[in-house]
């Protein structure tokens, strides 16, 4: 009897998997296969004339030699933005989790509030903030932190600032979730066992918030590395990221090269993420 019950239980599991599985097959697996196979097409073809599947890897070789600069720049910008997000987001998440008291929910709403406006509008508004005649540039020039003809818009600083701003909530929310779960008694126990507040943070709070930190950095770094809106709206031709290149190739009809670039980006990110997660050792955490 228990045998049939068990089998039915297994069946229910598969039935429950079905809708999401079908969805993923249709909208993730099929496009992914298409993407990878497109990357091996002969670049001589076009949408109108059709492509020949030649299985050649020249697409990869040519995009890597042509666009390695944008590639490295993307990873550099994404890493910088992620780091700034950690520096800004950790204290914020910590304050919301431990110090906010009855303001906690209001602060969480404030973190999420930007999502009520479109990503594009928010990025465009940074054009105004960082504009050459804007108060930010004026103030920095007054303080001599920026030269007379110095500017922020259309610089790497503007692009990284935009990315940081847009992805900060993705850092704060998982960090908050894991900080909030920490039993305050553990922090008291650290203090009771001769650890100063800083040592307690280093040995107790930080390791216990590591799952949130890892999740936050991944949620920030991965989309940031593939982002092109910020570079397009806040940057110039010398701040182009890999997303801009893919978009440009795509618009120009160079599908095989765009696909090869996309697959390369995906592969690089997967490798980096795997190395990072293994190094952080989060699977070891409770």
């Amino acid at each position: 009897m228990s045998d049939t019950e068990e089998r039915r239980g297994g069946l229910v599991g598969y039935v429950l998997l079905l809708p999401a599985g079908a969805w993923l097959t249709l909208f993730f697996v099929v496009p992914l296969v298409t993407l990878v196979s497109t990357s091996f097409y002969d670049p001589a073809g076009s949408l109108e004339l059709g492509y020949r599947v030649t299985g050649q890897v020249t697409n990869y070789a040519s995009v890597l030699s042509d666009y390695s600069e944008q590639f490295l720049r993307s990873l550099g910008y994404a890493a910088t933005a992620t780091l700034v997000c950690v520096l800004l987001g950790y204290p914020l998440a910590y304050a919301i989790a431990f110090k906010a008291g009855r303001w906690r929910n209001l602060m969480l709403v404030a973190v999420i509030a930007p999502f009520f406006t479109s990503f594009l509008i928010r990025t465009l508004s940074w054009q105004l903030i960082l504009a050459d005649q804007g108060w930010v540039v004026d103030t920095l020039q007054f303080l001599h932190l920026l030269g007379e003809d110095g500017r922020l818009l259309a610089t790497p600083v503007a692009v990284v600032t935009g990315i940081t701003y847009n992805f900060l909530p993705f850092m704060v929310l998982p960090l908050y979730a894991s900080l909030e779960k920490i039993d305050p008694r553990l922090i008291e126990a650290g203090s009771d066992l001769y650890a100063s507040p800083f040592t307690t943070f280093r040995t107790v709070t930080l390791p216990l918030s590591l799952p949130g930190l890892v999740a936050g950095t991944l949620l920030t770094f991965i989309p940031a590395a593939g982002d092109y809106i910020n570079a397009q709206l806040l940057g110039n031709t010398r701040t182009q990221m890999i997303g801009n290149v893919i978009q440009k190739l795509f618009d120009g009809g160079s599908y095989p090269e765009a696909a090869a670039l996309s697959v390369t980006l995906m592969a690089v990110i997967v490798v980096l993420v795997l190395a990072y997660v293994r190094r952080a050792g989060t699977e070891d955490l409770v």
Binding site: D183, R185, L186, E188, A189, G190, S191, D192, L193, Y194, A195, S196, T200, T203, V204, P207, L208, L285, V286
Partner: peptide, 28 residues
């Protein structure tokens, strides 16, 4: 508290979950 020659056995123990037993005991 971290300067007092006083230690506490907490209700529900408050052991550090990310450390081994030996690391917990060695903490102080």
């Amino acid at each position: 508290p971290y300067r007092r020659p006083v230690n506490t056995v907490f209700q529900s123990y408050a052991l550090f979950p990310h450390m081994t037993i030996a690391e917990n005991v060695a903490f102080g």
